[in-house]
Design a binder for these strands. Structure first.
Length: 256
DNA sequence: ATGGTCGGCAACCGA
């Protein structure tokens, strides 16, 4: 099973890129974030034409998640377990015997702000979510834009960026607490190198050419599932296109 | 170099 995650920064603006990527890479599952489209305007026809099933939940202007799969998508539930549910940031579904959880973790604005506190609380609630709905022995793959870089090698300038809303000990501990429920960082299992990023800020001049990036997009798997992973890679090809997202896809293959 | 660029959507917000 090949599964991918991609923050598309508007599905409609990036529709051609996403369709082309799906057509060429043929993942069994693609999870996307920041679709930025209301459900009534979701561009589903293009994906149906490729033979993909899909579920989605969006809102006006911001957020939005979707899951595309070759197989049946079952037991779909959007959002966390209590208010605010944030249905446009989280979805779980069962696909081919694997539980897929697609999340768009709040970015947090700046340390000390209400949005930052919300981000920390959100990660805390996500830990409870996994405790409630799954067992560590289940095959669970948790993917998405986590808006946290875990280690120094996951950002281009750790000393300059330390304290950033996506790179400080507090958010790292919050994400670590979720991971400690029972997840393995599949990319890191296969690649110990630095300078392996999935996000480059549009505002950073020459950010991509100088590789001034962050690894914010993850594929996590429960231990039994991670043991079956054959590989994991970041696909930078979409960043070479005319209208790239600021993120790029991360892909993992499992021998199941 | 205390900046910069996107997308959505109609003035700024979010990233």
């Amino acid at each position: 099973m090949k599964i991918a995650t991609f923050n598309v920064n508007s599905l409609r603006a990036r529709l051609g890129i996403v369709i082309d990527w799906l057509d060429k890479n043929e993942p069994d599952v693609l999870c996307v974030q920041e679709t930025k489209v209301q459900d009534k305007d979701f561009p589903g026809e293009a994906f149906a034409g490729l033979g993909y099933n899909f579920v989605y939940r969006g809102q006006k202007s911001y957020n939005g998640v979707a899951v595309f799969a070759k197989g049946e998508i079952e037991d779909v539930v959007f959002g966390l377990d209590d208010e605010p549910y944030d249905e446009a940031r989280l979805v779980r579904a069962k696909i081919g015997g694997v539980w897929v959880v697609n999340s768009y973790v709040p970015q947090g604005f700046e340390v000390g702000s209400e949005k930052y506190e919300y981000k920390l609380e959100w990660l805390g609630r996500l830990r409870e979510y996994f405790e409630k709905h799954f067992k560590q022995s289940d095959k669970v793959v948790w993917v998405g834009d986590f808006n946290v870089a875990m280690e120094d090698i996951d950002v281009y300038d750790p000393d300059g960026l330390r304290g950033h809303v996506c790179f400080n000990e507090q958010v790292q501990e919050a994400l670590r607490a979720v991971m400690d429920w029972g997840f393995v960082d599949v990319f890191r299992e296969h690649c110990k190198d630095g300078e392996q990023y999935s996000f480059w800020d549009y505002r950073m001049r020459g950010g991509l050419s100088r590789n001034r990036g962050w690894r914010l997009d993850y594929i996590m798997a429960t231990k039994s599932l991670a043991q079956s992973s054959k590989g994991c890679y970041i696909d930078k090809r979409p960043r070479m296109l005319v209208k790239p997202s600021d993120h790029t896809p991360v892909v993992a293959e499992f021998d199941i």
